[in-house]
Amino acid sequence: MVICIFFNDASLFSSVDYIVLTSVDRDDLPDGGSGHFAETVKAMKKLKPDIMVECLTSDFRGDLNAVAALVHSGLDVFAHNIETVKRLQRIVRDPRAGYEQSLSVLKHAKHCKEGMITKSSIMLRLFLMVLLSPLFVDCETRSIDEFEPTPLHLTVKEYVTPEKFASWKEYGESIGFRYVASGPLVRSSYRAGELFVKTMVKEMSSNTSTVLQ
């Protein structure tokens, strides 16, 4: 894994208030690249303590110590995508991934540090009961999208109207998600730093500080 953040003008970094770090594939390092994520978070927090950082990660092969190392780096939002329902895992995802493994990663990220915000995403055409599962491990945010890049990819069976996307957003929030982004152009990092999520991070940080005092 190589994480590169370039600013032509150093002053530009001071204007950034929310950053999403991710990797294009699984890492062959023993910790799955968790250490790189963690050190990058620490470096950015050192440069700008009030910057908010989200990491969209793999499942680190189910290594919960790797999950914990990242969570305790100063991270604000831990994101890992479930992608699809359990029944379609082997068809859609890397064979090294697993539905229960993904849930265990999200659950551990949530519970090994008080106030950690967790986030997951699914592809709409691979939807159904997967909407509910992250809720069982206290995941706060959810994004839902629809996309078929080429004929070699899974077929989109139905054109989903904006009204239907809106109804799923409403349903997701009604069953307990604090935030749902649902739309045909939504991706896992879609408007990640928008006001609601940033406010939620700040609220939790403020509450934690009050308890510590």
Rank of each mutant, 00 (worst) to 15 (best):
V130H: 02
V41W: 01
D138G: 09
A79Y: 04
A109D: 05
L135C: 10
D50N: 13
L131Q: 07
R125G: 11
V67Y: 02
V67S: 02
Q89A: 13
S120K: 00
D59K: 04
I82S: 01
I144T: 00
P149W: 06
A66I: 04
D145W: 08
S58D: 03
E148G: 05
I51D: 07
D63M: 05
I51H: 08
L47K: 12
R90Q: 15
A79D: 08
L131G: 06
I91S: 10
K110I: 11
R93Y: 04
I122E: 00
S120H: 02
L103P: 01
R90N: 14
L75Y: 03
L126T: 10
N65H: 13
A69V: 08
S120E: 02
G32S: 14
K45H: 12
I82R: 00
K48Y: 06
G115C: 07
E83C: 00
V71Q: 02
S133W: 03
K45N: 11
V67N: 01
L135H: 08
V53C: 04
P151C: 09
G98F: 05
N65G: 12
L132Y: 10
M123A: 06
H72D: 14
L103A: 06
N65A: 14
A97M: 10
D50V: 12
R142G: 04
L103C: 09
P149I: 05
G33I: 10
K119A: 02
G115F: 05
P30Q: 14
K45S: 10
G32C: 13
S58L: 03
F127H: 12
T40P: 10
E83W: 00
P95N: 15
M44C: 15
L56Q: 02
E140N: 05
I144P: 00
M123H: 03
M123W: 01
A38E: 11
E140C: 04
I122F: 05
C112I: 06
V71T: 05
D27W: 05
H108W: 13
P134E: 03
F136I: 13
K86P: 05
L106H: 03
G98S: 12
A69C: 09
F37I: 05
L128D: 14
G35D: 15
L106R: 01
D31K: 13
V105D: 00
A69R: 08
T150D: 11
M116H: 09
C139I: 07
D63P: 03
I51V: 15
R87G: 08
K119P: 01
R26M: 12
S34L: 10
A43L: 15
L56A: 01
S120Q: 03
F147V: 08
S121R: 00
L70D: 03
L64Q: 04
L152N: 14
K119Y: 01
E39S: 13
I117V: 07
D94L: 13
V53A: 04
D28M: 15
R96V: 11
A79T: 08
T40Q: 12
S34D: 10
E100Q: 13
R61Q: 11
S143R: 06
S104L: 11
E100K: 13
T150F: 11
S58Q: 04
P151L: 08
L124E: 07
K113C: 14
D63W: 04
I144A: 00
S34H: 09
G35V: 14
M44V: 15
A68R: 09
S102G: 14
N65K: 14
